[in-house]
Structures are given as C-alpha cells and as structure tokens.
Simulated scan of single mutants.
Amino acid sequence: MRVVTARDYDQMSRKASYIVASRVILNPRCVLGLATGDTPKGLYRELVRLHQAGDVDFSGVTTFNLDEYVGLAPEHPNSYHRYMEEHFFRFVSIPPEQRHIPRGDAPDIAAECERYEEAVRRAGGVDLQILGLGRDGHIGFNEPDVKFEKGTHVVRLAPSTIEANARFFASAGEVPQSAISMGIKTIMSARRLLLLASGPEKAEAIRGAVLGAVTPDLPASVLQLHPNATVIVDDDAASLLF
C-alpha cells in the first residue's frame, strides 16, 4: 500500500485526477470503478477540467459504480445515477451504454446483484477502482463485519452511515435503509485501487486502514492485502499516521 499526502482537499483531488487520467491516457478503453459521496466531487471536477482542456478523452472508457440505494429510481434526486450525471457524466464523453450503476429500483434486487456482478466479469474486471472511506472504515457500502468474500450484494446500512448521509435528504427518515454494493471480493479483484480521504473526521479510520490489523471490523483494512493500492489523504486525514 502506498500512502500519498496532500496539504488539503483540493491538492488531494488534483493528485488523484492525475492518477486516473494517466490510466485513461495509457489505456483509452480501460474500465474505471467509480465512487460517490462528498470526497470524489473534487476528483470529478478535476477530471472534467482535464477533459475540457483536451488532455484526456473518456469516450472509450467503461465505468462501474460501487453502489446505489435500494428503492431509488435513477431519476430520483438523491440516486447515485443522478449524482454521477450532475458531477461527471454530463461533462465528459462516455457513451451511456458504457456507464453501469446498479438499479436500486429493480423488481428483483437479488437478481440485480447477480446481473451487476456478471457485467463486471464480462467487462474483464475493473482496471482502477476509486474508493471513498466512511468514518467507520467502510468502503462502498460494505459496513463493518461484512465478509471479505462477498460479491455484489444488498447491505443493511448502519445507523452511523444513515446519519452521515442524512444531510443529502430532507431528513434522516428519508435515507434508504439498504443499498446494493460491490462487495469486498469484487473491489479487491480490481487491478488497481485508489482510496481518497479528507478531513480530521477520517483520521482514525485511515490509521486503522493503513496501520491496523486486517479485519472485517474495519473493511478498508483489507486494502493492505492488495498488490497495487494507493491511498491519498490530506494532512488532516493523515494526522494520526506519523
């Protein structure tokens, strides 16, 4: 695991964008795994900037998102379909048929999980998976105690995760209680991993993920076992590492 530090969120986002853009430049038909939430917004902003400057072309890229809320249709304002459209897809050249996000409104959620896992396999797996980090160390929506051998599956969200995401909804009561998420096994099958974390509230989780024991109690700790994992953290998130 490589740890890269940045002085602040903006520099972290820029450094991450150079890694992602370099993958696309070297392999224009690569498969990117995408994350949502507050942390990747700066990364997407920087990638859009590079695209609009003519430095990187996403037209050959295939994408797979980590997760989606169960029960939300793609057009719902808080769906991750909408998030990706607003922050990335509408600004770049990825054809719609090359963008993949789980359907939270699928009539058979178990079948949707199987379909999504199979779609990742058919694409040849993920070349570079982008990850954020929950305060409890979750990646994707893989909460503490989720088994490492899980593929794409339905996750019951922890109260802390619901509380953290309540700011995106009118109230905590409107946050879905479950989500479809790529599992740890799927994430770890990616050829490269890129974890981003910013802010002092992530410092404890980063210390555990980088220096602690590998345990399902802190899902991000499994990244220590990946042969090509990079962690980019700002000074606040890195404050307990050194």
Rank of each mutant, 00 (worst) to 15 (best):
L225N: 05
G54S: 10
A119T: 07
V214T: 15
S189P: 01
L225R: 14
R99Y: 05
G42D: 08
P176W: 02
V4E: 01
N78W: 01
L196T: 00
E112H: 09
L193D: 04
R121M: 11
S198W: 06
G124P: 09
S178T: 14
I206K: 09
E117L: 07
A106P: 03
V31Q: 02
T215P: 10
Q98R: 15
D217A: 15
M84Q: 12
V154T: 10
S189F: 00
D236K: 13
M188Q: 12
G125A: 09
R122A: 12
P95L: 11
V231D: 01
Q98L: 12
A190V: 04
L195K: 11
V222I: 15
D145G: 03
M188V: 13
R90K: 14
A205M: 03
H153T: 10
S221K: 04
L128C: 12
Q11T: 02
A229I: 00
P219K: 12
L218E: 13
G199H: 05
A106H: 12
A220R: 03
A35H: 06
E117C: 06
R115F: 13
E201K: 10
G173K: 05
R156K: 08
G173A: 05
D105P: 04
A6Y: 03
V20R: 04
L26G: 12
R29K: 13
L43M: 10
L131S: 08
P159D: 04
E163V: 14
A203W: 06
F91C: 03
I184S: 09
S17F: 04
M188D: 09
P28Y: 01
K185S: 13
P107I: 11
F168L: 11
G199E: 07
L72A: 13
R156N: 06
R207Q: 15
G183R: 14
E174N: 00
G140R: 05
V61S: 04
T215N: 15
R2G: 01
A21Q: 06
D57Q: 05
D55M: 05
H81T: 13
R99G: 00
G132R: 11
E112R: 08
M188N: 07
P227H: 03
L211E: 15
R49E: 14
Y69L: 08
K150L: 03
P95N: 08
P227Y: 02
I180W: 10
D236P: 11
E201S: 14
V126C: 10
V61G: 09
N142K: 02
A119V: 01
S22Y: 00
T186D: 14
H81E: 14
R29I: 00
I130H: 04
I232P: 03
R192I: 00
T36A: 15
M188F: 14
V175S: 07
N228I: 00
A238K: 04
F91T: 07
A203P: 03
F169M: 01
Q11P: 00
A229W: 07
K15F: 02
V231A: 15
V154N: 05
P159Y: 02
Y83C: 08
P216D: 15
Y80H: 12
G42S: 08
A190H: 14
Y69P: 01
N65E: 11
Y18E: 15
G140Y: 09
V4D: 03
V56S: 13
L43E: 07
R192G: 12
I206D: 02
P219W: 10
Y69Q: 04
